[in-house]
């Protein structure tokens, strides 16, 4: 089913255009809001150092009122990895703050998404195979309920039960104070121990969407003629359910998965605040509280870039799973 060069080019092109749009939105929005942009990016007050502020202003072309010149300077700086200096973490550059936060977010979000997708897949398929059964109805109602609950509330409830009352997990943070003194295995164990509750909370919060989408898809697949033919062929239940049905139900949801990933990242932002988990969400939260504008912009860009890359990977993997796509 050789990967088709046109397809790859198209997907990469689309990702680049999306990236460009995200970067431009990031440039334009603050300016459209009508604030003093020089002050938001290079506030002398916040940075506490007029020299640094002046240097930043020059770098970003803020001493020039021409918007195009500013745009050009902004792009040039961005390509050099310069997103300005964070007020809160002065003198740390935004890029550095974000890069140290990103792995925590990506790690938990990816693991949570994969697990949640897998679990949702199993439950959705079980429900659709016997639609109308007790299991199906219960899973449907639980899904509706979970879809109605804010991510962070699930996080708070989980902390209340499992950390505060049962004392099974830490109350928050990604690593303990004495992290550096731990052995290698000790470090890994403690990281997992800290990440467990946020990840479980994210799984619970994002599960419902997967269940519902897969259930609807499989119900549609089950009405196809090839499913009837598979039954007429006398194939085993198992083979019809998984090889013939579940796989086809999975395919259309795969592109949907990426839209959900955006949702999950959005949810993860608030979840991290609940767990004081040092990822992009917590950084963003602190940036908002302290009006650290360069950091907010940086956070937006990092979130956008991560999602765009994840999307691109999914797009490129899609033809491997669905042979029909490669040909189009």
């Amino acid at each position: 089913m050789g990967l088709n060069a046109g397809y790859i080019l198209k997907r990469v092109g689309f990702a680049l255009v999306t990236l460009y749009v995200a970067i431009t939105v990031n440039f334009l929005l603050p300016r459209l809001m009508g604030g003093d942009i020089a002050d938001t990016i290079a506030s002398e007050m916040a940075l506490g150092s007029p020299e640094v502020a002046a240097a930043l202003r020059e770098q970003f072309g803020l001493d020039n009122t021409n918007l195009f010149y500013q745009y050009k300077q902004y792009l040039v700086q961005l390509f050099q990895g310069n997103m300005g200096v964070s007020y809160v973490n002065y003198p740390a550059p935004v890029t550095e703050v974000m890069l140290s936060a990103l792995p925590w977010t990506l790690g938990t979000v990816l693991i949570a998404t994969i697990l949640s997708y897998g679990i949702g897949w199993m439950i959705g398929i079980k429900g659709a195979w016997k639609s109308g059964s007790l299991f199906d109805n219960i899973s449907l109602f639980v899904s509706f309920f979970l879809n109605s609950v804010p991510y962070f509330w699930i996080g708070i409830i989980m902390i209340m039960i499992f950390s505060f009352h049962l004392d099974l997990f830490p109350l928050g943070k990604a690593i303990p104070h004495d992290f550096d003194s731990l052995s290698f295995m000790g470090k890994i164990t403690t990281i997992i121990h800290h990440a467990a509750l946020p990840v479980i909370s994210m799984i619970i919060a994002s599960l419902a969407g997967h269940i519902l989408v897969l259930r609807n898809n499989l119900i549609r697949v089950l009405s196809e003629d090839y499913m009837l033919l598979a039954k007429a062929k006398g194939l085993s239940n198992r083979r019809r359910k998984y090889t013939y049905g579940a796989r086809n139900a999975l395919l259309p949801s795969f592109t949907g998965l990426m839209i959900t990933l955006g949702h999950v990242i959005g949810g993860a932002l608030t979840m991290e605040i609940v767990f004081s988990y040092p990822g992009v969400g917590l950084v963003t939260f602190n940036a908002i509280l302290n009006h650290d504008f360069p950091l907010i912009q940086g956070a937006f860009l990092f979130i956008a870039i991560s999602v765009i890359i994840a999307n691109l990977i999914a797009d490129l993997m899609y033809p491997i799973i669905d042979p029909r796509v490669a040909l189009q």
Binding site: E224, D225, Y226, L229, A230, A232, G234, T243, Y244, N248
Partner: peptide
Amino acid sequence: FDKLRWSHISIVLQSAMNNLNPVI
């Protein structure tokens, strides 16, 4: 009945397009 399927009774369904699973 499953044992009789296909070995004694087989079937060709209506639309040519949808008789075969598209991803197998």
